[in-house]
Design a protein around this nucleic acid. Structure first.
Lengths: 219, 219
DNA sequence: GTCTATAGGCGGATAGAC
DNA sequence: GTCTATCCGCCTATAGAC
């Protein structure tokens, strides 16, 4: 019985090593160009061991992306503790936006993960949806709750406002960092953030034609 | 001499056929999974003919993306004639946003093109930059000029505002259409557009601390 | 469970006839 | 310029020993 436990633990260690090797290979090469040989080598196991833990390449890829989506990139605001969502909007929103852009800038692993999810979203729609469910939705939901909790923000539509906020920042990350647009369309991140916050915090004196936003629950 | 001309024309036709076949294959399969055999078959020529027109797979891919970037997807506002950029902001901006989302929704060819450019932007940075230079920059520039031409819009920063407008819509396209988020994070496009336009058109009573915006020229 | 060795196929790229 | 036929390597996946 003792030997079985040891073997189980070894097996689990190998499985984790395989996922780690797969991460390096898939993030660097993309799905199609990734090689099971190189994954095995990077994990320090034989190719047959890889196939004993994962049915085929597709299966390994799915397992990897689901793991990354649930653990490593659980939220776009991943590096932001929940207590940061308390305080004046101008301060909190600036902090949030700054953290988001600083996290993405230069983090080639994160940028490659986004490239992979978007690039394969046509052939792996369920993985793209897993990404939405975990990363995008949790960030969106957190921001909606915060926006709705601040009475000084009289927003006619909290969800739409959250989309504008996140969309502006994600698009900035895509153009400047992922697509290497920094030299072609330069724009200081602080300048964008300043204007985004001004728009949201000052431009909210509009008629509230929606349902009461007191007991609303966001996705 | 006459035979030479005929041969030249045939050759040009074949080259165009190859690019057309390459478009189908690359947009459907991505770069790495695309096959030169299938491209040749789709173009109705032999594989050797493909290699007589293009040095290798990378070369063909680059030529294709550059062509698509310059011709087919020259502007995100591609389907919008320039004369549409005249009139009241609330009307023009709504028309612009609506056209943009309608163009992207369901156009699998366009969505696959975006997936390809983003997905390969790590391994083909110069193609991503070609995309920025042609598509993103021209849309951005048009919008900046329009925003600056409307005196009723007192925007403290035209370029930042244009980024917010385009970023919000591009992010919507990515989440809803490319990543299949429509069922997970539903949001009517009109609802987002309404709020975006309200924010830009009503929330612009802010101090103008920038340089005069009368004779500014945008990228 | 893990390994070595190998099957079997499809990939990109080319030689040489016409 | 275009074709047919072919080279050779790397790919995914598996068989069988330990």
């Amino acid at each position: 019985m003792k030997r079985t436990n040891v073997e189980r633990e070894l097996s689990v260690e190998k499985k984790e090593a395989i996922l780690e090797g797969a991460m390096k290979e898939f993030l660097a090469q993309g799905y199609a160009a990734a090689s099971m040989d190189r994954i095995a080598t990077a994990a320090g196991v034989s190719k047959a061991t890889v196939y004993s833990h994962f049915r085929d390449k597709e299966n390994l890829f799915s397992a990897l992306v689901e793991q990354l989506v649930q653990k490593k990139f659980h939220s776009i605001f991943g590096c932001v503790d929940s207590q940061a969502f308390e305080g004046e909007p101008k301060i909190v929103l600036r902090q949030l936006a700054t953290n988001m852009l600083n996290m993405a800038r230069g983090d080639e692993q994160f940028l490659n993960f986004m490239r992979l999810v978007i690039g394969e979203s046509g052939r792996f729609p369920s993985l793209a949806q897993a990404f939405i469910r975990n990363v995008e939705k949790s960030a969106f939901s957190k921001l909606c709750h915060y926006l709705a909790s601040r009475p000084e923000l009289i927003l006619s539509d909290v969800e739409a406002t959250a989309r504008i906020f996140i969309g502006t920042l994600v698009h900035y990350i895509i153009v400047q960092y992922m697509l290497h647009g920094g030299d072609i369309l330069p724009m200081e991140s602080d300048r964008l953030i300043d204007n985004l916050i001004k728009l949201i915090c000052n431009g909210s004196k509009i008629e509230n034609h929606g349902e009461s936003s007191s007991t609303q629950h966001y996705p």
